[in-house]
Write a protein that binds this DNA or RNA. Structure first.
Length: 537
DNA sequence: GCCGTTTTCGGCCCGACTGTTTTCAGTCG
């Protein structure tokens, strides 16, 4: 089993134990193990061979032994024992934000509902309010939560779809004689979420008849890919030694044959020069003909990252470890922006701890400067209910960079939330608005917000908006970024890394930036250090 | 189930909100 699969399996164990009412700390232990695995740079198999499983954070005797079982046999005793004890649909019910394990278990037992759909029907038929501990108000709320969840899951978030397609691609690459495998369709266009009912093609290319036969056999032997959580299909490409075939498939899948024909007719073969992320632009053909396509930003343009956490708050790596990781990635600068005090659950920094961290950063600076990395001091400061900041001006004044974000009280109405965020942007200390809409892909809609007003405020005060590149956020979306660019607002693309590994999550933000037509000059962290410092003031 | 010990048990990031069981459990960030 892969790291990803084992992590998901530990999460599944946690989900089931939680519904069974198992000790919350035991449940957390499994979740911590899954998080640790997700943060690993190395394969668990390799770590196991070196006998180092026990050294991983959150890996005790039991978790290490279960991990070894998964690696050796693909399963372990506890999984075999509990996997069928709670219906998959009940686990799904518990995962709907606002439902939770207790509610799911209670309603499963009282009403025998075993799917989100059945729960929804029970709410509509007013059967939930009759259950002990529930009432009419709770039933109405529950229905609202389910409806929100359904809206969020009409499309499958990229963060879930891409790993599935990549897994299929990995398996295809192992097929004898296959020369090239490409992920096509909506994923290839960089869309933040995809229609799971549409066919998502993974293209496998092979020139020899025997290899083509092997691909056909793979398809026959692996029907599970074709109709699981999303429809993945394998298409055999003709072998032309170019990427034309892959692009045609990309278009066919996401844009339909009409778009292919239009591209071919209007742009002849020059349409190869059109970046795939721009295929969804209605005026892409006109722009291409006029030679006015943007020179899209690439990963190579990045010179640093500006929103990172460490063990000072809720990160898993120290300032030094994060700086080392940034150097390895070839960055020229890295900003350390831990949480502010009000975010207690994330171990937010009091003013004294901010100053203490600043001392640590200053002590590390000479060594890293000599090696080519500037460490910027900063803070991800919470925007309070009234738009003021969760740290006093005297401290903020000392920092190189301030990211301001909303983490709590996000259920305010649109006018209040817009005023709150615009007030924060007016603060002279704030440089970047972090994850501007607060959405979590597939789980939470963003706060009620007048994004145009926020963009105008950012333009007025000369502040940047963030594309938060963590896969679960992908916040802002491409349409909003396009509007921001049109208004002359600068963008920061930030990994919001809580570990050295998540410093490598840039691609999730990059596809948004490219779909929005951003060029390197639009993005703060593509500037050289001197230019950035000049802008930060 | 993990962890760190005053080394084998007792604590495990915590504060706010919500509905209702009206005194606290469930859920969230």
């Amino acid at each position: 089993m892969t790291n990803y699969e084992i992590a998901r399996r530990f999460e599944a164990i946690a989900d089931i134990l939680e519904i069974q009412g198992e000790n919350v700390f035991k449940v957390r232990a499994y979740r911590v193990a899954a998080e640790t695995i997700d943060d690993l740079e190395d394969d668990l198999a390799t770590i196991h061979e070196r006998g180092k499983l026990r050294e991983l954070p959150g890996f005790g005797e039991a978790i290490a032994s279960k991990t070894a079982d998964f690696l050796a046999t693909g399963t372990t005793a506890i999984w075999e024992r509990i996997k069928d004890s709670v219906p998959v649909g009940v686990v799904k019910m518990a995962s709907v934000p606002g439902v939770g394990p207790r509610t799911a278990k209670a309603l499963w037992e009282a009403l025998e509902v075993t799917s989100v759909e059945a729960l929804e029907a029970a709410c509509r038929e007013q059967r939930v309010r009759a259950v002990a501990g529930f009432g009419a108000a709770k039933e109405t709320k529950l229905l609202e939560k389910i409806e929100a969840w359904k809206r969020l899951n009409e499309k499958m978030p990229r963060r879930w779809a891409l790993p599935l397609a990549e897994k299929l691609a990995t398996e295809l690459r192992k097929v004898e004689g296959v020369e090239r495998v490409e992920i096509a369709g909506e994923l290839r266009l960089g869309r933040e979420s995809i229609n799971p009912r549409r066919n998502h093609i993974v293209l496998a290319e092979a020139s020899t008849p025997s290899a083509q036969a092997a691909i056909a056999e793979f398809k026959l032997k692996n029907p599970q890919w074709m109709e699981t959580e999303m429809r993945l299909q394998v298409a055999e490409g003709e072998h032309h030694g170019s990427n034309i075939t892959a692009k045609v498939f990309t278009l066919r899948c996401a844009g339909g044959n009409e778009l292919v024909e239009q591209f071919m007719k209007e742009l002849n073969w020059e349409w190869e020069a059109v970046p795939e992320e721009l295929y969804d632009w209605p005026d892409v053909i006109e722009l291409a003909k006029a030679g006015k396509l943007p020179k899209l930003i690439t990963e190579a343009d990045f010179k640093g990252q500006l929103h990172e956490h460490t063990t000072w708050s809720d990160g898993t790596a120290s300032v030094r470890e994060m700086a080392e990781a940034a150097l390895e990635r070839g960055y020229a600068y890295l900003a350390i922006t831990d949480h502010s005090p009000l975010l207690a659950i994330a171990n937010g920094l009091s003013r004294e701890r901010v100053l203490a961290q600043l001392e640590e950063i200053e002590s590390l600076r000479p060594e890293f400067a000599a090696r080519g990395l500037a460490i910027l001091s900063g803070l991800e400061v919470d925007i309070l209910k009234d738009g003021t900041l969760d740290m006093d001006d005297e401290v903020l004044e000392k920092l190189d960079i301030v990211v301001a974000s909303v983490h709590m009280r996000y259920k305010e109405d649109e006018a209040a939330m817009t005023a709150r965020i615009c007030a924060a942007l007016a603060s002279p200390h704030v440089d970047i608005l972090g994850h501007p809409t607060g959405r979590i892909m597939g789980q939470r809609e963003g706060y009620a917000l007048d994004i145009d007003a926020v963009i105008q405020a950012a333009a007025k005060y000369g502040k940047a908006l963030e594309i938060n590149a963590s896969p679960e956020r992908m916040d802002l979306c491409d349409e909003h970024v396009k509007k921001a660019k049109a208004a002359g607002v600068k963008i920061a693309i930030n990994c919001d890394a809580h570990s050295t590994k998540s410093l490598g999550n840039l691609s999730w933000g990059l596809c948004i930036a490219r779909r929005a037509g951003l060029e390197a000059s639009d993005v703060l962290n593509c500037w050289d250090l001197a230019t950035l410092r000049g802008w930060l003031g």
